[in-house]
């Protein structure tokens, strides 16, 4: 390869002698030597630490990202759980309220029913009482009338018992009774 380039370059040089295309083996050697030394020195003292720092940082960043991702997943999971718990709690509350309401309704109905019942009972009692009182009053009246009749009869028997007078008296007594 060297010979190829050299021969071509020599050809150019031979024709023109242009300083721009003059081949200087010394300078080529300088370049190669400098470059090799540079690769060795930089490889040990520059590229190695730079690339190592780069790799460790990249690994750290990847690790951090992974951790962040995991944390995010955890947080999401926890949020989901919280949401579920809250849903459950709110359902429970609704259920409790509904239950309470139903219970109160039941209670109210019971109370009203009981009140109605007792009112009816009291009314019935009152009615019974009244009819009883009425019956008693009637019975007493009857007794009174009977006694009165007897008294009247006694009085009449004491008087002269002529027919017309007797009739007039009985009417009078009956009239009195009706008045009473």
């Amino acid at each position: 390869m060297l010979t190829l380039i050299f021969s071509y370059a020599m050809l150019l040089n031979g024709e023109s002698g242009n300083p721009l295309l003059k081949i200087e083996t010394g300078l080529i050697m300088w370049t190669i030597t400098t470059f090799i030394v540079l690769v060795l020195v930089l490889g040990k003292f520059a590229w190695k630490p730079i690339l190592e720092a780069l790799h460790s940082r990249e690994a750290e960043i990847a690790d951090s990202l992974k951790k962040a991702e995991e944390a995010k997943k955890d947080a999401e999971r926890m949020m989901q759980e919280n949401k579920l718990a809250m849903d459950k709690a709110s359902n429970e509350t609704a259920r409790l309220i509904a239950e309470g309401r139903a219970m109160a309704e039941q209670l109210k109905n019971d109370i009203v029913a009981k009140a109605n019942e007792s009112a009816k009972k009291m009314l019935d009692q009152a009615k019974d009482e009244i009819s009883r009182e009425k019956d008693a009053a009637m019975a007493q009246l009857r007794t009174e009338v009977a006694e009165l009749s007897i008294t009247v009869a006694e009085k009449i028997l004491d008087e002269s018992l002529d027919g017309a007078k007797q009739k007039k008296m009985v009417d009078k007594v009956l009239q009195q009774l009706q008045k009473n």
Binding site: I5, I23, I28
Partner: peptide, 11 residues
């Protein structure tokens, strides 16, 4: 300089 680039190309 063509010699320097030649050196780099040889490497």
């Amino acid at each position: 300089n063509i010699n320097v680039t030649a050196g780099l190309a040889i490497i």
